[in-house]
Design a protein around this nucleic acid. Structure first.
Lengths: 194, 194
DNA sequence: CATCTTTGTTGTCAGTGCCTACTTTGTTTT
DNA sequence: AAAACAAAGTAGGCACTGACAACAAAGATG
């Protein structure tokens, strides 16, 4: 570790920020704190993140990347059948979404600012998985035909909403498994081939 | 208007806070700003709100009250039939939820703090409307029997999730009406009497 | 009228994000 | 190899914030 040039300050800051976010939420995350923790001066982070929001955006972006990974892993582990695949995806998403509520919030609420193109692009990746799943269900003849995009949005929204309720303390986490079951069943029944 | 005693500072502050929240979001809301706007000293708000979070909580609470009003109004205006009633509720909720995204966020994300009992109680009011609706659908023979509570959660979650997607810029607002349609149809089909 | 409570005021403190100017280090060019 | 340059740190300052304490005015209460 060199004295002056830290070497990988950016990564160090991001790691510390991730911990801070999870523990205390985005509001309490302080750049100066992170700098202290990394052992650099208070202005050093500025070289890597033009402002606080940029740091938060980077966290959100890496969140989407991790979400994408986890969803793909869940899908890969599930079999070929549509029902189980859908169920596995739902469970994986909710695990991710309820495990770090501050991160989820960061990922899904753009705070009154324009052009977070990079973020939207990162979000498109995992969100694009849904329509794919739907299309597969349609191809297998389980679901009725229709625009996979629109149907996928509704499905995803349901999962996202459940996560919001749990994270907001409006629904007990113990109920999660049961609710997911209901949601998935209801979705399949609601759009299966007539 | 008396010179020293403002008379209704609390209400004045809340009104200004509501505007500020809607325009700039909770992050940028500044107590000192509100005080300036109300023409009082920077420490005056402290007499009415012990700290910043208390002010935000009050905003969220009044948000739930207004939501409750609007949902009830929508239900009252709808007829007796279950389908239209459900649709009206969904539309009313999404109108509320997408009209002031910062408020919605405030209402549904408790920021790492315990015992916001008052808030949870305020939330229970409008959220309790859902199971009631479901029960009615069951009584009318449109929906299959089952725990209205659990089914209601899924329904509400779907709406909440749609709002999150719109507010987060991940779904175009123009698609809203169409998506609501799909969501409601799918819900009814998914849990109607077999 | 005297007293007490409520609701203001002023002043202070630690902390923050952002900015500018300067310094050190590593890289590239001549 | 020396010189020029870019990248990545440091130091200090600024305006601003929320919270706190001590005090003052106004109103309510005995």
């Amino acid at each position: 570790m060199p004295a002056y040039h830290h070497g990988n300050l950016r990564a160090t800051l991001l790691a510390a920020a991730e911990r801070s976010l999870r523990r205390d939420g985005a509001d309490r995350l302080s750049l100066r704190d992170l700098a202290r923790e990394a052992g650099v001066s208070h202005a050093a982070p500025r070289r890597h993140f033009p402002d606080r929001q940029a740091l938060l955006d980077a966290l959100a972006e890496s969140g989407f990347a991790r979400l994408d990974q986890e969803l793909r892993a869940a899908l890969a582990a599930a079999g070929e059948e549509f029902g189980p695949r859908l169920h596995a995806t739902a469970v994986a998403y909710l695990r991710f979404a309820t495990e770090d509520s501050a991160l989820l919030e960061l990922m899904f609420t753009r705070k009154h600012r324009e052009g977070a193109d990079r973020l939207v692009a990162a979000a498109a990746e995992p969100l694009g998985l849904m329509p794919g799943l739907i299309a597969q269900g349609q191809a297998q003849g389980v679901l009725e035909p229709g625009d996979p995009q629109r149907v996928g949005i509704v499905l995803f929204a349901t999962l996202q909403g459940i996560a919001t309720l749990v994270n907001g303390g409006l629904m007990a986490p113990e109920l999660l498994d049961g609710i997911v079951e209901i949601a998935v069943d209801q979705f399949i029944r609601g759009s299966r081939r007539r």
